[in-house]
């Protein structure tokens, strides 16, 4: 997917043009049940469908200093309010590993994850495998979220650059990007989610 360069991201956020209708429809699937990290999770979700978010609509722009990614999706009516809606994108720190493994020791992935609810906000997470995610570096991550009934629109931003544990981002380069989304209203959290199966290219315009 392409990440257009704009003059100022804040102007885009205030209602300016995103990528000129160049949205990417990212197909999502439920994470495989056998790969869930605990017997309890597997057992308790065996009879219950999850991964209800089938498609993410993604747009990305940058202004040379910061990246903004807009993620849009729709969920079925909620059955609980215990868990927040959440969405995340992952970028590789060095090399890529299979997205479904949530990173590996030698190939960590850097995730920016937004969630709504009581602890709303965006968190920088460094993952080196399933169930291993930990605090990630501060990359000035911010989010702007909007909910309209069952439709969500979340913009996550971070600054460009590189640093220990951070996925490097530089204008004019190409990296990989992967996605995950949680339908909190369906009690989705942790590994119970939908994800983009594989990495996509993220091409940052020069």
């Amino acid at each position: 997917m392409k990440c257009k360069r704009v003059s100022r991201i804040d102007l885009v956020l205030e209602g300016g043009q995103w990528s000129g209708g160049d949205s990417t429809q990212v197909e999502m699937i439920a994470t495989p049940l056998p790969m869930q990290p605990t017997g309890y999770v597997i057992k308790s979700w065996a009879e219950k469908p999850y991964g209800t978010i089938k498609t993410l609509t993604v747009d990305a722009v940058h202004d040379g200093h910061a990246l903004a990614v807009r993620l849009q999706w729709e969920v079925p009516p909620a059955t609980t309010t215990d868990f927040p809606p959440a969405v995340a994108f992952a970028l590789p720190v060095k090399a890529t590993s299979p997205l479904v493994l949530m990173g590996m020791a030698e190939a960590p992935m850097h995730i920016l994850r937004w969630q709504g609810g009581a602890q709303a906000g965006v968190r920088s997470v460094l993952a080196k495998g399933i169930g291993s995610s930990n605090h990630g570096p501060d990359v000035g991550q911010k989010a702007l979220a909007r909910q309209d009934g069952n439709r969500f629109s979340v913009v996550i931003t971070r600054v460009l650059g590189s640093g220990a544990g951070a996925a490097p981002l530089k204008a004019g380069t190409t990296t990989k990007i992967g996605f995950a989304a949680w339908d909190g209203g369906n009690e989705e959290r942790a590994g119970i989610k939908s994800f983009s199966v594989d990495w996509l290219d993220l091409v940052l315009a020069a």
């Binding site: 869930q36 990290p37 605990t38 017997g39 309890y40 999770v41 399933i130 169930g131 995610s133 942790a190 590994g191």
Partner: peptide
């Protein structure tokens, strides 16, 4: 059961 259930 709690310990064994926790994915983290």
């Amino acid at each position: 059961a709690c310990l064994e259930a926790c994915p983290r």
